[in-house]
Design a protein around this nucleic acid. Structure first.
Lengths: 155, 155
DNA sequence: TTTCATTTTGAAATTGATTCTCAATCTCGA
DNA sequence: TCGAGATTGAGAATCAATTTCAAAATGAAA
């Protein structure tokens, strides 16, 4: 029996889902796309295109930035990644397959990003929207500040 | 007795506050700054620099965009305006003097922006931060969707 | 009010993230 | 194997915002 490197279950699933999504719209599978997608799903956290590009070019230095941008857009359209626009200018992507909705805590010192879910806040948001006759499609809740470690470091 | 044009109470107060803020740091009062600040506080809502520049150049066509950018940065540093980064790329500014903290509902169809306050949500956010040992400096809560009017228009 | 160090200004150049363009190169079904 | 159509990488273009720089304005002191 062959030993296989451990890998997030979602990585394989994501590649499969992407393959059918690509096929279903007349797009084509390419070596570059595979490598980018594989690299993305092998990482954790919230990656900027720049950070992802670094990891990608480490494996194949001929891959250009434009292709990474294009691929992340496809992953997003396919619902396999989601784009986050935190403060700081760059878009960051996180894996979205089989993930619950969640919001973020962002440390403005070290840049680390923490996730949280809070059903009560969601309910209250829905109520606010309702009071205004709004039909909400998406929302953004981000808490910025100092994480525990950075507070202690600053003592 | 002289009749004076009606004006938001905050406008005059803001100009005054800005004057002392400017004086306190060795900056200088200028005609351009006055005009930009006056224009800004005479408007309501969430203005982009572009929109503000339009109003400003209508009164003095020689004023450049860089000066508007610079002036809004000063107003922000002085705590008299606050910068908001909604989806769509441009920064929008709103008057901040004597204003309570509030969050936003943004209509993705007509672009209108509505404000709301919700003390319960704030409390829950504080609790989430506490659970993570986070010291929050600021946060962002934005609900995107269709406003009432746009929903009806689409029927 | 003149002087003059300092700040401010407008225009144009620059930045940084992202998107677009285009010719060359792939992909995949017939 | 072919060939229509998709994809690629490099560099140009875009867009908001910032920076640069020489000329002009400000305001405190003389």
């Amino acid at each position: 029996m062959k030993r296989v490197a451990a890998r997030k279950p979602s990585a394989a699933a994501a590649r499969e889902r992407l393959a059918s999504w690509i096929a279903s719209r007349g797009l084509k599978a390419t070596r570059q796309r595979d490598l980018i997608v594989d690299t993305f799903f092998t990482q954790t956290g919230h990656l900027s295109v720049d950070e992802l590009l670094d990891k990608v070019t480490a494996r194949d230095s001929s891959i250009g930035a434009a292709t990474v941008y294009r691929t992340m857009k496809i992953l997003t359209d396919a619902g396999l990644a989601s784009a986050r626009h935190f403060e700081g200018g760059q878009t960051r992507y996180e894996a979205a397959l089989d993930r619950h909705h969640h919001d973020h805590l962002i440390c403005t010192s070290c840049g680390r990003i923490f996730e949280f879910e809070n059903e009560r806040i969601e309910e209250l948001q829905a109520r606010v929207a309702e009071q205004h006759g709004f039909r909400v499609t998406h929302h953004k809740l981000e808490l910025y500040g100092l994480c525990k470690a950075c507070q202690e470091r600053q003592q």
